[in-house]
Structure formats: C-alpha cells, structure tokens
C-alpha cells in the first residue's frame, strides 16, 4: 500500500454531487466517478466531517446513506437551509449550490488512481486552489 501516490485534492477530483431540498433539510448526493473510489469515500467522508463542513450554516445532524451498487452516498443534512425555501434569506433559497461545499471544501489525501482519466486533476500542476 505504501507505493500508492496520493495528492492533497478536493472531492471534486473524484466525485460529483447534486443538492436537493425538503423544508429545512438539504440532501446532497456524492457519486464517485470511478467505482473503485467508493471505498475511499466510505472511509474518508464521514458524517462527522460533513457535519463540520456545514456547521457554519447552523446545520444540525448529518445522516449518511450508502448505495454501493451505484458507488454513491446520500447525505441528509438537517437545518442547513435557513428555514427552507419559504423562509430563507439566502440568495439561494433552495440550497442548490450547497453540493459544491462538499465537492470544494473537503480536502483529502487522494490516491491518484481514483482520478478519472482525462480529468484536469491528473496534471500534478493543475492549480485548483
């Protein structure tokens, strides 16, 4: 295992996501581009880490659901939407942009083998910061 090269990268390098809303609850899917990235996400993207990412929004508990067949997860984040679409003062009342908190702000040591071919992240000099 010691010879697998890793790089400090955001989840955006290996996964995609979409946010949905129901009342004041946000749900954000996290889908690995490559099925082999599923186990890495399972080990590294815990409920506690996601809760910390969203705490500044006043978010409460986070529940993670696993869908191994689809190499995907669904995160359900309570109280993340300033009251929900009918009460929020955010420019984005549905919280549709919030999927990019998960993709942009969780920086991990990611094995290079989990980055899909052709991705700009394959280039070690790609400046994503």
């Amino acid at each position: 295992m010691t010879n697998i090269k890793t790089r400090e990268l955001p989840l955006h390098a290996i996964a995609h996501a979409r946010a949905g809303d129901k009342g004041n609850v946000s749900n954000i899917s996290l889908i690995a581009y490559l099925p082999e990235a599923y186990d890495f996400l399972k080990n590294e993207v815990s409920e506690a880490k996601v809760e910390a990412l969203f705490s500044h929004l006043g978010a409460g508990a986070v529940k993670r659901y696993a869908l191994p067949n689809l190499h995907a997860f669904n995160f359900v984040i309570e109280d993340a939407l300033d009251g929900g679409v009918n009460a929020s003062r955010s420019l984005d009342r549905h919280g549709k942009t919030l999927s990019f908190i998960l993709l942009s702000r969780l920086i991990l040591d990611i094995p290079e083998t989990l980055i899909p071919q052709g991705s700009p992240y394959c280039d070690p000099d790609f400046n994503w910061r």
């Binding site: 979409r18 949905g20 809303d21 129901k22 889908i31 529940k63 659901y65 869908l67 067949n69 689809l70």
Partner: peptide, 27 residues
C-alpha cells in the same frame, strides 16, 4: 444516479401514497 438521489432522503424508504420504494439494491 444524480437525479435518483435528488430530493431523496432515506434511499430504503422513498414514501409516496402508493408505496414505500427502496432503491438500495437498484442497478
């Protein structure tokens, strides 16, 4: 997959008036 999980909470019980749907073994 993105649309499947859109506005879904527990993938083992997506409740509508007719049924509670479970997509955890979906392929």
């Amino acid at each position: 997959t993105e649309q499947l999980l859109y506005e879904m909470h527990d993938p083992s019980c997506y409740v509508v008036p007719d049924v509670s749907a479970d997509v955890t073994s979906m392929e």
